[in-house]
């Protein structure tokens, strides 16, 4: 076995093994887990937001319908990056403002002083003295919220389209059998819309994965940040000096992203087959095509 204590005296493969196992590289490997957990947490949340927005946008009650329609139209119309910058900032300052009002009610001055946003120390979220871990986690949760709001609107649009695509005759048949609006929704519309929503949703899933490099805007060190930082040329100020190796790091990211997309494709294929079961419309088209 060899040791990594004197990197300038080792060469070749040993050097590479030591290099790839530095604490910095460990953080790089960890960031893959962070990115994957972000998409895995965000996706169901966004789907929930989308489902609520889509259902509300079909509601007969105007106060339900209009906020949902405005939400979908607004988020789809504004560039993602604007929302990724706006939502976490607004959330963070909103939370701190509320905590400031609640916890430091004795302070009467405005929280905005010139350029500065000042809340009292105990209203900080998280507290200045909190561990780095708490700060990271808080940032991560803000990011999840921002992604869920943005992708929720996209999903809402896809699901609204899917709901409209379920043959109207089926809903009317449901009513003819004496089902209430609610029963028609849950027993006829809801189970059948998925097959129409699936292509759009799988597209969104891939978009979500591709949007993860925006994480660094929110202060989270994601895989693209690390690839750039680790790959950049290093002078001997660093323990492991090397020339510009960004191309290799980005190649690794390319493989990672392609791999995730490949796995996603397979999962969506399976889902597609599953939701097609018992679908008269699709069966016919499959038989005609086959």
């Amino acid at each position: 076995m060899f040791s990594c204590t004197n990197p300038d005296q080792i060469e070749g493969l040993n050097w590479l093994v030591c290099y790839l196992s530095t604490a910095k590289h460990m953080a790089f490997y960890q960031s893959f887990v962070v990115v994957l957990s972000l998409v895995l947490i965000t996706a169901p949340l966004a789907l929930l937001f989308g489902l609520m927005a889509a259902s509300a946008s079909r509601s007969a009650i105007a106060v339900m319908r209009w906020p949902a329609k405005i939400y979908i139209a607004m988020v789809r119309g504004v560039p993602d990056i604007v929302f990724f910058l706006f939502v976490p900032l607004a959330l963070d300052q909103g939370i701190e403002y509320i905590r400031h009002r609640a916890l430091c009610s004795d302070q009467t001055g405005s929280v905005w002083q010139g350029n500065d946003f000042i809340v009292c120390d105990i209203a900080k979220m998280p507290l200045s003295s909190a561990s780095a871990w708490a700060h990271d986690f808080y940032g991560f949760m803000l990011a999840v919220t921002a992604y869920a709001i943005v992708f929720g609107a996209f999903a809402g649009n896809v699901l609204a389209g899917a709901m409209a695509a379920v043959p109207h005759a089926q809903l009317e048949t449901g009513s003819a059998f004496g089902m209430s609006r609610r029963q028609v929704y849950w027993r006829v519309l809801f189970p059948q819309m998925w097959i129409y929503a699936l292509p759009g949703l799988s597209n969104l899933w891939v978009l979500l994965i591709k949007a993860t490099p925006l994480l660094f805007l929110l202060g989270i060190q994601d895989i693209v940040y690390w690839a750039r930082e680790l790959g950049s040329a290093k002078t001997s100020a660093y323990t492991y000096p090397h020339p510009d190796w960004r191309v290799w790091y980005f190649l690794a990211l390319l493989i990672f992203y392609l791999f995730v997309t490949w796995v996603s494709e397979r999962v969506f294929d399976r889902l597609n087959r599953r939701f097609s079961r018992g679908q008269a419309v699709l069966m016919n088209s499959q038989q005609a095509g086959g």
């Binding site: 604490a23 910095k24 953080a27 003295s129 930082e229 950049s232 100020a237 660093y238 323990t239």
Partner: peptide, 22 residues
């Protein structure tokens, strides 16, 4: 008192992130 010091971490020798990720 806890003070948070913001730096870029990409400008050696002023500031950089070393291989120990510090």
């Amino acid at each position: 008192e806890t003070i948070r010091m913001g730096t870029e971490g990409a400008y050696p020798p002023y500031n950089f992130i070393n291989d120990k990720n510090e």
